[in-house]
Amino acid sequence: MSKNKMGSFVTKIVLKIFLLISLFQISLAGRKLSEVVEDHPQLLTYHNGPLLSGKITINLIWYGKFKPSERAIISDFVTSLSSRTTPSQNNQPTVAQWWKSTEKYYHLTSKKSSLSVSMGKQILDENYSLGKSLKNKQIVELASKGEQKNVINVVLTASDVAVEGFCMNRCGTHGSALGSSNGHIKAKTYSKFAYIWVGNSQTKCPGQCAWPFHQPIYGPQSPPLVAPNNNVGLDGMVINLASLLAGTVTNPFGNGYFQGPADAPLEASSACPGIYGKGAYPGYAGNLLQDPTTGASYNAHGDNGRKYLLPALYDPATSSCSTLV
């Protein structure tokens, strides 16, 4: 055999061996990933920072065009967090019961603080005062329109608004910004206030940000579920808002409960991705409740007869993902 043929033969053998090794590594990594998602949520670490505590008001800042019926889906969810109405047997579990799970984080800290949330103001910016393409700093600017003391200011962008990173690597975010210590813009001293941004993915990326109410763009394919409020975009926003609210109160300033890098942390809800009911696995949201009339899937009852689908929360007491159903 000539040297050229021998070299070609050896090269082919090496390439085949490399391909087999690569396929094995890909298969192994895929299996490990699915195991983490299903059975072994990340252990969240407390970084000794403050949790959001005291009486906190949640203000909603609507950017772009939203129908009153769409705004009601979100506002009813927020009021449901602190609902004191005793639910009947047929109206359980509730949004308030889901939210109560966050109390476990407070019980584990040495400060033993507590939290009470309530619905605040709603601010409408229907004329796109900052345009239809927003950067992160403009989200903070919009969040600053609300009061800035003892608050979570939630910016909600309409489906025709593009936001930096939206649909590429995030469906929403939370953070903190400097605000006046007395709640007014013109003040001599400043303190941090918490904010959240969530976008309506209806026309841009419902497969990423409104699953399981829309077919996913990758991964296991299963039929989409019927949205409980008959609005894929807004029901998806509720899921993301719920997740970010849990992350905000337990890690408001980047030094609370989280796992991984501080600039891309796994938090109270994001540590349990894609889990909404018992028996969940990648591509399957879990065993959920179903409305006999509409066929909609949900796991929580809210105010005004609402039904919602809420994500699992990491339970720091059991180091596992906890669901309502």
Rank of each mutant, 00 (worst) to 15 (best):
S82Y: 05
R84I: 15
P87V: 02
S88R: 12
N91F: 12
P93S: 02
T94M: 00
A96N: 08
Q97P: 15
Q97G: 12
W98S: 04
W99D: 08
K100Y: 10
K100W: 10
T102M: 11
E103N: 10
K104A: 01
Y105T: 00
Y105L: 04
Y105V: 00
Y106R: 13
Y106V: 05
Y106C: 04
Y106S: 05
H107G: 09
S110D: 12
K111C: 07
K112W: 13
S113A: 14
S114R: 09
S116E: 13
K121T: 11
Q122D: 11
Q122A: 10
I123L: 03
D125Q: 14
E126N: 14
Y128Q: 06
S133F: 15
L134Q: 00
N136W: 13
N136Q: 10
K137M: 13
K137P: 01
Q138P: 03
Q138W: 10
Q138N: 07
I139V: 04
V140W: 07
V140G: 00
L142Q: 02
L142G: 01
A143C: 01
S144D: 01
K145V: 05
K145G: 03
K145I: 07
G146Y: 07
G146K: 08
N153I: 15
V155G: 00
L156V: 06
T157K: 03
A158R: 04
S159V: 11
D160E: 11
A162K: 08
G165N: 05
G165I: 06
F166P: 00
F166Q: 01
F166W: 10
M168A: 15
N169G: 09
C171G: 00
C171R: 00
G172F: 04
G175R: 05
G175L: 06
G175Q: 02
S176M: 09
S176V: 04
L178V: 09
L178W: 14
G179T: 02
G179C: 01
G179H: 02
S180C: 06
S180G: 04
S180N: 03
S181D: 11
S181F: 08
N182S: 12
G183I: 11
G183P: 02
G183Q: 09
H184I: 12
K186D: 05
K188H: 09
T189I: 06
S191T: 07
S191L: 07
F193Q: 01
A194P: 04
Y195I: 13
Y195R: 05
Y195G: 01
W197S: 00
W197I: 03
V198W: 00
G199F: 11
G199Q: 03
N200M: 08
S201Q: 02
Q202K: 13
K204W: 08
K204G: 06
G207L: 06
G207A: 04
A210V: 06
W211D: 01
W211K: 06
P212R: 14
F213Y: 11
H214W: 05
H214E: 06
H214M: 09
H214F: 09
I217F: 13
I217M: 14
I217D: 12
Y218Q: 08
Y218L: 12
Y218I: 11
G219T: 08
G219M: 13
G219V: 10
P220F: 12
Q221W: 13
Q221P: 03
S222Y: 15
P223L: 11
P223Q: 08
P223V: 14
L225N: 02
L225P: 03
V226W: 14
A227D: 00
A227M: 03
